[in-house]
Design a protein around this nucleic acid. Structure first.
Lengths: 225, 225
DNA sequence: ATTTTAATATGATAATTGTCATGTTTTCTT
DNA sequence: AAGAAAACATGACAATTATCATATTAAAAT
């Protein structure tokens, strides 16, 4: 099993602020996992008790609404930490995490890392920065949900996914989402999401290869009102 | 001017985790302010460079949408800290803060408190907990915005305000909001908010005394689908 | 390879919400 | 106290979005 001290992934998240000694200790108690696409990593209400360092892949964080829909609140990718909040609060998770493709993760038990959070101010400040950033993003999402049309939100979601998670060699979005996922990001009915995507296609803003989506005009998508 | 060490307000926020020495130092550099209802405390894009400890009153945090509406993202009351995020990130504020009634606040410059954040792990852990809580709340708001009707959201907003900020002796909500404010919390047109409130009144769920609102049946509001 | 199932697509229609117009009430100003 | 301005209220209508029905296509299972 790989060692945290030597793992490049940590450069991308708060673990980079741990000392070598701390990393060695964590490395000895972490567990590596391969997670198949579609697997639920944790559910709403679960006690998580640790963080996942994502070595590869991507997952969605969602919350079940009373109307039966599963609103996607955030996506977490390779390099990032999943479940940071469980380190801080003793409450159970308010979100469900589901793998969007095959993932490789390391799980670090809370018990082993919580002391570092208390002792290593650089580390806790890093986590703090992360959360502040998440909070800012959440504010933006709230405003978008409240004030923008489905069309606008979907256009922005496409741009966001394009810019944040990149594209395949053929130009299609590297994260493969179902139409239902798109609907659950944007907060609309699946049919509505499908309809809007069809329109975007007609307008030449995107093209599709099977369920893969390729953005043809970011500028065009940005211009949508 | 009052001294932080003796101030009861700090019991309600993360400042309680500062040592006596730290509090004394902060007390010497803080500035007290009275803020009139309606005053903009800081705007989007402002560099805040400190936190406000709210001794009395309440304010709204909002963000301007492209369509000209001012979405209210959060309300901050007596006892809480305003602008915590400015301590952590060096970016300018993404939100505007506006006093909803007359306020009394103490402003603590970032320069004086940032060292404590680095050195006092109890304090930074407290702030971390706060942010984790805010983030959880933000998730809930996103789901509500995306999946619930205006009617449901407004009912929930009324309940939230009732439970979180309390009522006057006559039973009316102690935070006096305009219909436009309600619309901006719920993310709808002012006319729609007015309409729904009128309906709630007709249905006996609320009553009004001028623009003051009194909840007559929390259970009824909760039952709305 | 064929059946079965799930995902995508589109039409028709209903429900929700936004916009504009206009009137009323309340609050503020002088 | 009178007039002006802002906030509240409601109707009429348009736009957006959800829901239900039903194809069509793609993926999975046997």
């Amino acid at each position: 099993m790989g060692k945290c001290e030597q793992c490049i992934i940590k450069q991308f998240n708060s673990l980079k602020s741990l000392t070598k000694d701390e990393l060695v200790r964590i490395s000895n108690c972490k567990t590596s996992h391969t997670i198949k696409k579609g697997t639920v990593i944790f559910e709403e209400g679960d006690a998580i008790n640790g963080v996942y360092c994502i070595k590869d892949g991507i997952c969605k964080l969602s919350k079940l609404s009373e109307n039966g829909k599963d609103q996607i609140v955030k996506m977490v990718v390779k390099g990032q930490l999943l479940g940071q909040r469980s380190l801080v609060s003793d409450e159970n998770s308010n979100l469900q995490a589901t793998a969007l493709n095959d993932m490789e993760v390391c799980f670090i038990p809370k018990s082993e890392i919580i002391a570092d959070l208390q002792k290593n101010p650089k580390f806790s400040f890093d986590i703090l920065k992360d959360m502040a950033h998440d909070l800012k993003e959440a504010d933006d999402i709230i405003v978008n949900m409240a004030q923008k049309s489905v069309r606008q939100r979907l256009a922005e979601a496409l741009i966001y996914i394009h810019n944040s998670f990149g594209v395949n060699p053929d130009g299609t979005l590297s994260v493969l989402l179902s139409r239902e996922d798109f609907a659950n990001i944007v907060g609309t009915a699946t049919e509505s999401a499908i309809r809007v995507l069809s329109q975007f296609k007609k307008e030449g803003l995107i093209s599709t290869i099977g369920k893969q989506i390729k953005i043809e005009s970011i500028e065009g998508l940005k211009r949508i009102e």
